[in-house]
Simulated assay, not measured.
Amino acid sequence: MSLKGPIISIEDDPDDQFMIEHTIRKLGVANPIRFFGNGQEALDYLESTTEQPFLMLCDINMPIMNGIELRQRINQSEYLSRKAIPFVYLTTTASEESVNAAYAAMVQGFYEKAPSASAFQDQLKLIIDYWQNCLHPNRYIHFV
């Protein structure tokens, strides 16, 4: 994790992408934001980039590769596991089954998207503040 690294958002809905970016900017967070429409696009990026992302926010239901499959593939990769990028689900799919599957895949957080803009802003602020203040083994390590 790099405090200045990009925030990765894996979200297939353009309206939700807009809302995420707008809210993060409104919070004054300067980190670049990288959007991917499905887990496979995000995985391809993560396997090829030298960037050390700050945080990943991931939806669950997406085409090609869903959020649970993405997390499982990250866990299976020695390179990506070692990066230890904080991985948080931010989704409308908050069933007992999806929460259990997420934590079985060793996710660091699971949030159901808040129903209003102000509640969503509070939710993202909480997530970002937590990871900005959390001590992390890769905080100062840069991977190549």
Score class of each variant (00 low, 15 high):
E41S: 01
V88G: 08
N31W: 13
M106P: 11
C134H: 06
A84N: 14
K83R: 12
H136D: 00
G67T: 13
A101I: 02
E21C: 10
Y89E: 12
I127E: 03
D129I: 01
I7K: 00
Q121V: 03
D16W: 06
T93G: 08
N100T: 11
T92P: 12
L27Q: 07
K26W: 02
N66H: 14
I85V: 12
T93S: 10
A94G: 09
L124R: 06
A84K: 15
G28R: 00
L55D: 04
N38K: 01
Q40D: 09
R73A: 10
F54K: 00
P86F: 05
V107L: 06
A101H: 15
H136T: 03
G5D: 07
H22L: 15
Q72G: 14
Q72E: 10
I64P: 11
I141S: 02
H142F: 04
M106W: 08
Y111A: 13
T91K: 00
P115W: 13
P63M: 15
P32Y: 12
D16M: 05
N31G: 08
D44P: 02
A84L: 13
T23V: 05
V99F: 04
E51K: 01
V29P: 05
N66V: 12
Q72L: 11
L3W: 01
Y79N: 14
R25L: 10
S118K: 15
